[in-house]
């Protein structure tokens, strides 16, 4: 054990105090309140959730949407990130800038952009009108949400993949090739295992963000009840505190579970078993 040469214990506690106050005020107390409200009436709210097709459906579609967004984001960003980190070509910096620009946009703006693409007045709508004679609109559907979330997630994951790929040891891939491995075998046996911890971590963040995304869903005012929208509706419109609190905790629990699973898996893949 290393000897602690810094401040004395009372001083350290004093320095930690602001953080503890913030933690208590913005996490502990509200969580306690949520827990208290949602478990009122002998936990009836949770039972009601289980028996309500609408809430269950919303939970399932949110999880499925988030999983799909995560999977597609990872695949697209992996390809783009590997390409960008390994190839030098004119316009590379410009392409990276364009790809990561959405980082600057909040979910509301992303939702707005999806409407500009595929809304009733959108580019896609005009295009299909001109070609087929009927307007095709998908901004307010699952497809619109999916695209919005994807657009929101890709820059974050691309940057992580690029950072991880640049740290890869080139001689590992050369060694695999010298042993006869073709491109896809090198990818499968060397590159992906080396990138796995980064992909797991960024994938988990991507999933968590999609689970809780509100701005995009709200802007698109979709027909789909994603969980954050349901919570918002129950709370502000129906003043149904009980259900809103229970749904909030379920959303938190699902997201937290996925994050911690990914964390465990990441730790295992980073330190391969004997």
């Amino acid at each position: 054990m290393q000897t602690d040469l810094t401040f004395s214990r009372p001083m350290r506690l004093l320095f930690l105090l602001p953080l503890l106050v913030v933690f208590a005020a913005f996490w502990l107390l509200p969580m306690g309140a949520l827990l208290r409200i949602s478990t009122g009436e002998h936990g009836g709210a949770y039972l009601a959730l289980l028996h309500s097709p609408r809430y269950l459906q919303s939970l399932i579609s949110t999880v499925l949407l988030s999983l799909a967004v995560t999977a597609v984001t990872i695949v697209l960003s992996l390809v783009a990130g590997l390409f960008l980190s390994r190839r030098a070509f004119p316009g590379r910096q410009l392409l990276i800038a364009a790809l990561t620009l959405p980082l600057a946009f909040p979910g509301v703006v992303v939702g707005f952009m999806v409407i500009m693409l595929a809304g009733r007045q959108g580019v896609f709508s005009d295009l299909t009108q001109a070609i087929t004679g009927t307007r095709s609109v998908f901004a307010y559907s699952m497809t619109g949400l999916f695209l919005g979330y994807l657009y929101f997630s890709i820059p974050r994951v691309v940057l992580t993949v690029m950072a991880a790929a640049e740290k890869l040891d080139a001689s590992l891939e050369e060694a695999a090739r010298s042993l006869g491995a073709r491109d896809w075998e090198v990818l499968r046996d060397v590159t992906l295992p080396a990138l796995a911890p980064a992909l797991l971590a960024t994938g988990a963040m991507c999933f968590a963000t999609s689970m809780g995304a509100f701005g995009t869903a709200f802007t698109l005012a979709t027909d789909i009840d994603v969980l954050p929208m349901v919570i918002y509706t129950e709370f502000t419109l129906n003043a149904n505190m009980l259900t809103a609190a229970a749904l909030s905790l379920v959303l938190g629990a699902v997201t937290w579970t996925v994050l911690s699973l990914a964390h465990t898996a990441g730790a295992q893949s980073a330190a391969p078993s004997a």
Partner: peptide, 28 residues
């Protein structure tokens, strides 16, 4: 290189960290 049938040893050895000793040797 993958079609030349050469054996290579790198300065940093470049052993596959996600494989055991046996799996490393068996890879080729």
């Amino acid at each position: 290189i993958e079609h030349r049938q050469v054996g290579m040893v790198f300065q940093n050895y470049a052993l596959f960290p996600n494989m055991s000793v046996r799996q490393n040797i068996a890879y080729g």
